[in-house]
Design a protein around this nucleic acid. Structure first.
Lengths: 205, 205
DNA sequence: TGCCTTTTGTTCTGCCTTTGTTCTATTCTT
DNA sequence: AAGAATAGAACAAAGGCAGAACAAAAGGCA
């Protein structure tokens, strides 16, 4: 999937999840910054060929997601679920968890577009993200307010920050560290590379 | 394989695993620090001759990894290693990790005697272990000084604390929280259940 | 209902930029 | 001297883009 296709798919996903119905070609074009609907149409065609989208031909707002994440994932035996045993730090020796929660390693680490980065620096210590931690990042080019993102400023410096869109022209990248100041940038200077899904820290000796 | 070829191959691997599509010659050049695309092209040609890469001629982003070199995710037989892609928060967009570090999920989560607990309470916030985090515990009945343990006091209350043996008769269980006091117990009253190997936190929305 | 306008999906065409590719030249290492 | 590393120019193909044009669908209005 090419980057522009990815971008269009992101936009469609966002739109559907926000509105409940699919965007029109013109809406996608405006959101993606294109002036021509035909442009979008090309990418949508590619996405349909690749099986990421389904079209109801000639229908308005007739796009649907063909998402593998929503329903059954028929992936043989690569599914690694680990049960959570219980809750620690209060009451009984180890209080069993009622719900039978599970951690799906497959989904957490091996989902499409997820990768690992080592965190360096102290800009997020207030939410417990420390230097040396490992971050699971999901590749995306758009983010919701409040998500923690990997963002590239001026195509130069990549950082982990909390994302907040202030207006159409401005975004805020806020470090979670009382000693640092939030930074406000023009939207055009900031490119989202991914969002933080999970962080993990090893305690080695 | 020459060192520079290796480097280029690493960059391509990282890029594909992070984005889902291959980089362009120019992107590889920028990531590797070259000014000329032709430079990259030469190495890519070598890598193709050696069978590490496959090219779709003249296509953009038309590089694919040959299976033999897909060290990316070795899930051959239940062994799940995930490469760390790089370091985030300073310098280059994403600074590639030289060592090719890997995270071995198999070993981390499925090693004998390891299990998961959900953390509850604030007694370890100073080391970034928060309420709701997931802890990977390795079952053990003894601990080294300084390790973080799951300890049972008087066969009643299980907690996560830092372990310190003060003498043959006394052990200290120290919460990592400035507002709490370390507790000292007779050795006989404390039973170690396991040590903290890793903690992990999800960022859901 | 029937007519008209607007919106929308779709196709086609033409222009510009990016990209893969090849060649050549220069410097560096051994 | 030989091979590798680097830089830059140049070209053709592919992709990115805008706009025009047309038919189907939707909605308004008498």
């Amino acid at each position: 999937m090419l980057p522009n296709e990815q971008r269009v798919l992101d936009i469609i996903r966002s739109y559907i999840s926000a509105h409940g119905y699919a965007p029109t070609m013109a809406e996608i074009a405006r959101l993606a910054g294109y002036r021509a609907r035909s442009q979008v149409h090309g990418y949508v065609n590619s996405l349909i060929e690749q099986g990421h989208l389904i079209r109801e031909p000639r229908a308005r707002r007739g796009l649907r997601l063909a998402d593998s994440s929503s329903t059954g994932r028929g992936e043989g035996e690569g599914q690694l679920c680990i049960p959570l045993q219980g809750r620690i730090a209060a009451g009984q020796p180890i209080e069993a968890l009622p719900g039978g929660e599970e951690l799906d390693l497959q989904q957490l680490f091996l989902n499409d577009g997820r990768y690992l980065l080592r965190v360096s620096g102290d800009s997020m210590v207030d939410i417990g993200l420390f230097d040396g931690d490992i971050a699971v990042i999901e590749h995306r080019e758009t983010a919701q307010n409040g998500e923690i993102v990997v963002a590239l400023v001026d195509e130069q410096e990549a950082t982990v920050k909390r994302f907040q869109r202030l207006s159409a022209e401005q975004v805020e990248l806020r470090p979670e560290n009382r000693t640092m100041q939030p930074m406000v940038y023009a939207t055009s200077r900031v490119r989202i590379q991914g969002v933080l899904v999970c962080s993990l820290r090893m305690y080695n000796h």
